[in-house]
Amino acid sequence: MILGGSGCGKSTLMKQLIGLLPPNSGTIEVLGHDIVRERASVLPSIGVMFQSGALFGSMTLLENVMLPLEIYTRLAPPARASVARTKLGLVGLGESADLLPAEISGGMAKRAGIARALALDPPLLFLDEPGAGLDPITSAGLDKLILELREALGVTFVVVTHELSSIMTIADRCIMLDRDAQGLIAEGRPDRLKAESANPIVHAFFHREVL
Protein backbone atom coordinates (compact mmCIF):
# COMPACT_ATOMS: atom_id res chain seq x y z
CA MET A 1 0.00 0.00 0.00
CA ILE A 2 1.25 3.48 -0.82
CA LEU A 3 0.34 5.94 1.92
CA GLY A 4 0.87 9.58 2.59
CA GLY A 5 -0.84 12.90 2.97
CA SER A 6 -2.26 14.96 0.15
CA GLY A 7 0.32 16.16 -2.36
CA CYS A 8 3.08 13.78 -1.27
CA GLY A 9 3.24 12.09 -4.68
CA LYS A 10 1.27 8.88 -4.17
CA SER A 11 -0.63 9.16 -7.43
CA THR A 12 2.49 10.32 -9.26
CA LEU A 13 4.31 7.23 -8.02
CA MET A 14 1.44 5.06 -9.18
CA LYS A 15 1.47 6.72 -12.59
CA GLN A 16 5.17 5.94 -12.81
CA LEU A 17 4.58 2.33 -11.77
CA ILE A 18 2.02 1.84 -14.54
CA GLY A 19 4.15 3.61 -17.13
CA LEU A 20 2.09 6.76 -17.58
CA LEU A 21 4.95 8.94 -16.33
CA PRO A 22 8.66 8.22 -16.82
CA PRO A 23 10.87 8.34 -13.70
CA ASN A 24 13.14 11.38 -13.37
CA SER A 25 16.07 9.04 -12.90
CA GLY A 26 16.71 5.31 -12.58
CA THR A 27 14.43 2.56 -13.82
CA ILE A 28 11.18 1.04 -12.58
CA GLU A 29 10.69 -2.69 -12.88
CA VAL A 30 7.21 -4.17 -12.79
CA LEU A 31 6.99 -7.98 -12.76
CA GLY A 32 10.72 -7.97 -13.46
CA HIS A 33 10.46 -5.83 -16.59
CA ASP A 34 11.35 -2.20 -17.27
CA ILE A 35 7.97 -0.47 -17.38
CA VAL A 36 9.28 2.30 -19.64
CA ARG A 37 11.09 0.22 -22.23
CA GLU A 38 8.80 -2.82 -22.19
CA ARG A 39 5.54 -1.05 -21.41
CA ALA A 40 3.55 -2.60 -24.26
CA SER A 41 4.37 -6.14 -23.16
CA VAL A 42 3.86 -5.43 -19.45
CA LEU A 43 0.49 -3.66 -19.80
CA PRO A 44 -1.62 -6.81 -20.42
CA SER A 45 -0.18 -8.24 -17.19
CA ILE A 46 -1.30 -5.36 -14.99
CA GLY A 47 -4.70 -3.93 -14.26
CA VAL A 48 -5.41 -0.38 -13.14
CA MET A 49 -8.43 1.11 -11.45
CA PHE A 50 -8.40 4.88 -11.49
CA GLN A 51 -9.83 7.01 -8.72
CA SER A 52 -13.14 7.71 -10.48
CA GLY A 53 -13.37 4.28 -12.06
CA ALA A 54 -12.61 5.93 -15.45
CA LEU A 55 -15.28 3.90 -17.20
CA PHE A 56 -16.02 4.78 -20.80
CA GLY A 57 -19.30 6.65 -20.66
CA SER A 58 -20.52 5.56 -24.07
CA MET A 59 -20.23 1.85 -23.23
CA THR A 60 -22.23 -0.34 -20.89
CA LEU A 61 -20.42 -1.94 -17.95
CA LEU A 62 -20.26 -5.20 -19.92
CA GLU A 63 -18.72 -3.47 -22.94
CA ASN A 64 -16.22 -1.70 -20.68
CA VAL A 65 -15.03 -5.04 -19.32
CA MET A 66 -15.10 -6.68 -22.75
CA LEU A 67 -12.82 -4.03 -24.27
CA PRO A 68 -9.44 -5.43 -23.04
CA LEU A 69 -10.58 -8.92 -24.00
CA GLU A 70 -11.41 -7.67 -27.49
CA ILE A 71 -7.98 -6.11 -27.90
CA TYR A 72 -5.74 -8.71 -26.31
CA THR A 73 -7.50 -12.05 -26.95
CA ARG A 74 -9.06 -13.88 -29.85
CA LEU A 75 -12.17 -14.84 -27.94
CA ALA A 76 -15.36 -14.83 -30.00
CA PRO A 77 -17.91 -12.15 -28.94
CA PRO A 78 -20.19 -14.55 -26.98
CA ALA A 79 -17.18 -15.96 -25.11
CA ARG A 80 -15.92 -12.44 -24.40
CA ALA A 81 -19.32 -11.50 -23.02
CA SER A 82 -19.35 -14.61 -20.78
CA VAL A 83 -15.88 -13.87 -19.42
CA ALA A 84 -16.80 -10.22 -18.87
CA ARG A 85 -20.01 -11.24 -17.06
CA THR A 86 -17.89 -13.46 -14.81
CA LYS A 87 -15.72 -10.48 -13.85
CA LEU A 88 -18.76 -8.32 -13.20
CA GLY A 89 -20.28 -11.14 -11.14
CA LEU A 90 -17.08 -11.40 -9.11
CA VAL A 91 -17.41 -7.77 -8.08
CA GLY A 92 -21.15 -8.12 -7.44
CA LEU A 93 -22.34 -6.33 -10.57
CA GLY A 94 -23.68 -9.33 -12.47
CA GLU A 95 -27.14 -7.82 -12.67
CA SER A 96 -25.91 -4.38 -13.77
CA ALA A 97 -23.96 -5.46 -16.84
CA ASP A 98 -26.17 -3.59 -19.28
CA LEU A 99 -26.18 -0.28 -17.44
CA LEU A 100 -24.23 2.75 -18.57
CA PRO A 101 -21.68 4.33 -16.19
CA ALA A 102 -23.98 7.36 -15.86
CA GLU A 103 -26.67 5.09 -14.42
CA ILE A 104 -24.66 3.67 -11.52
CA SER A 105 -23.38 4.97 -8.19
CA GLY A 106 -19.79 5.91 -7.34
CA GLY A 107 -19.22 2.67 -5.44
CA MET A 108 -20.56 0.62 -8.34
CA ALA A 109 -18.33 2.57 -10.75
CA LYS A 110 -15.29 1.66 -8.66
CA ARG A 111 -16.29 -2.00 -8.57
CA ALA A 112 -16.85 -1.93 -12.33
CA GLY A 113 -13.40 -0.33 -12.66
CA ILE A 114 -11.95 -3.27 -10.73
CA ALA A 115 -13.84 -5.73 -12.97
CA ARG A 116 -12.38 -4.05 -16.05
CA ALA A 117 -8.92 -4.10 -14.48
CA LEU A 118 -9.39 -7.84 -13.85
CA ALA A 119 -10.51 -8.53 -17.42
CA LEU A 120 -7.28 -10.22 -18.46
CA ASP A 121 -6.68 -11.89 -15.07
CA PRO A 122 -3.51 -9.89 -14.45
CA PRO A 123 -1.33 -10.99 -11.54
CA LEU A 124 -0.91 -7.36 -10.44
CA LEU A 125 -3.63 -4.78 -9.88
CA PHE A 126 -3.14 -1.08 -9.12
CA LEU A 127 -5.95 0.76 -7.35
CA ASP A 128 -5.89 4.53 -6.96
CA GLU A 129 -7.83 5.71 -3.90
CA PRO A 130 -10.50 2.98 -4.04
CA GLY A 131 -12.38 4.33 -1.02
CA ALA A 132 -12.25 8.03 -1.93
CA GLY A 133 -15.65 9.67 -2.04
CA LEU A 134 -17.49 6.61 -0.75
CA ASP A 135 -19.50 6.22 2.43
CA PRO A 136 -17.90 4.04 5.16
CA ILE A 137 -20.16 1.06 4.45
CA THR A 138 -19.48 1.05 0.70
CA SER A 139 -15.80 1.64 1.37
CA ALA A 140 -15.70 -1.30 3.78
CA GLY A 141 -17.51 -3.40 1.16
CA LEU A 142 -14.82 -2.51 -1.35
CA ASP A 143 -12.09 -3.49 1.12
CA LYS A 144 -13.84 -6.85 1.63
CA LEU A 145 -14.04 -7.31 -2.14
CA ILE A 146 -10.31 -6.64 -2.50
CA LEU A 147 -9.54 -9.25 0.18
CA GLU A 148 -11.87 -11.77 -1.46
CA LEU A 149 -10.37 -11.25 -4.91
CA ARG A 150 -6.89 -11.52 -3.51
CA GLU A 151 -7.78 -14.82 -1.89
CA ALA A 152 -9.77 -16.22 -4.82
CA LEU A 153 -7.61 -15.10 -7.72
CA GLY A 154 -4.21 -14.76 -6.09
CA VAL A 155 -3.89 -11.20 -7.38
CA THR A 156 -1.38 -8.81 -5.83
CA PHE A 157 -2.90 -5.39 -5.17
CA VAL A 158 -0.94 -2.14 -5.06
CA VAL A 159 -3.27 0.38 -3.46
CA VAL A 160 -2.81 4.12 -3.17
CA THR A 161 -4.81 5.48 -0.27
CA HIS A 162 -4.80 7.62 2.83
CA GLU A 163 -7.81 5.98 4.46
CA LEU A 164 -6.78 4.50 7.76
CA SER A 165 -9.56 1.93 7.98
CA SER A 166 -8.67 0.52 4.55
CA ILE A 167 -4.98 0.49 5.39
CA MET A 168 -5.53 -1.48 8.60
CA THR A 169 -7.95 -3.90 6.87
CA ILE A 170 -6.26 -4.84 3.64
CA ALA A 171 -2.58 -3.91 3.76
CA ASP A 172 0.16 -6.52 4.19
CA ARG A 173 2.89 -4.02 3.60
CA CYS A 174 2.90 -0.25 3.45
CA ILE A 175 5.25 2.42 2.22
CA MET A 176 4.68 5.94 3.37
CA LEU A 177 5.66 9.01 1.37
CA ASP A 178 6.06 12.52 2.68
CA ARG A 179 5.97 15.80 0.83
CA ASP A 180 8.65 17.56 2.89
CA ALA A 181 10.99 14.57 2.89
CA GLN A 182 10.35 14.24 -0.86
CA GLY A 183 10.33 10.49 -0.66
CA LEU A 184 9.89 7.41 1.47
CA ILE A 185 9.78 7.87 5.22
CA ALA A 186 8.47 4.50 6.43
CA GLU A 187 7.95 0.96 5.30
CA GLY A 188 6.49 -2.15 6.89
CA ARG A 189 3.34 -3.82 8.19
CA PRO A 190 0.62 -1.32 9.07
CA ASP A 191 0.10 -2.61 12.64
CA ARG A 192 3.84 -2.30 13.31
CA LEU A 193 4.04 1.15 11.81
CA LYS A 194 1.11 2.25 13.92
CA ALA A 195 2.47 0.79 17.12
CA GLU A 196 6.21 1.21 16.79
CA SER A 197 7.14 3.96 14.37
CA ALA A 198 9.20 6.71 15.99
CA ASN A 199 8.74 9.02 13.03
CA PRO A 200 6.40 11.82 14.18
CA ILE A 201 4.74 12.08 10.75
CA VAL A 202 4.02 8.35 10.65
CA HIS A 203 2.77 8.45 14.24
CA ALA A 204 0.53 11.41 13.50
CA PHE A 205 -0.81 9.75 10.34
CA PHE A 206 -1.77 6.49 12.06
CA HIS A 207 -3.15 8.15 15.19
CA ARG A 208 -4.96 10.99 13.37
CA GLU A 209 -3.01 13.64 15.27
CA VAL A 210 -2.15 17.19 14.31
CA LEU A 211 1.58 17.78 13.94
Partner: peptide
Protein backbone atom coordinates in the same frame (compact mmCIF):
# COMPACT_ATOMS: atom_id res chain seq x y z
CA UNK B 1 -6.70 -21.86 -14.97
CA UNK B 2 -7.83 -18.29 -14.39
CA UNK B 3 -11.35 -16.84 -14.30
CA UNK B 4 -11.56 -16.92 -18.11
CA UNK B 5 -10.81 -20.66 -18.08
CA UNK B 6 -13.29 -21.20 -15.26
CA UNK B 7 -15.88 -19.27 -17.29
CA UNK B 8 -15.35 -21.71 -20.16
CA UNK B 9 -15.97 -24.65 -17.82
CA UNK B 10 -19.15 -23.04 -16.50
CA UNK B 11 -20.30 -22.23 -20.06
Amino acid sequence: CDTAGATLLVA
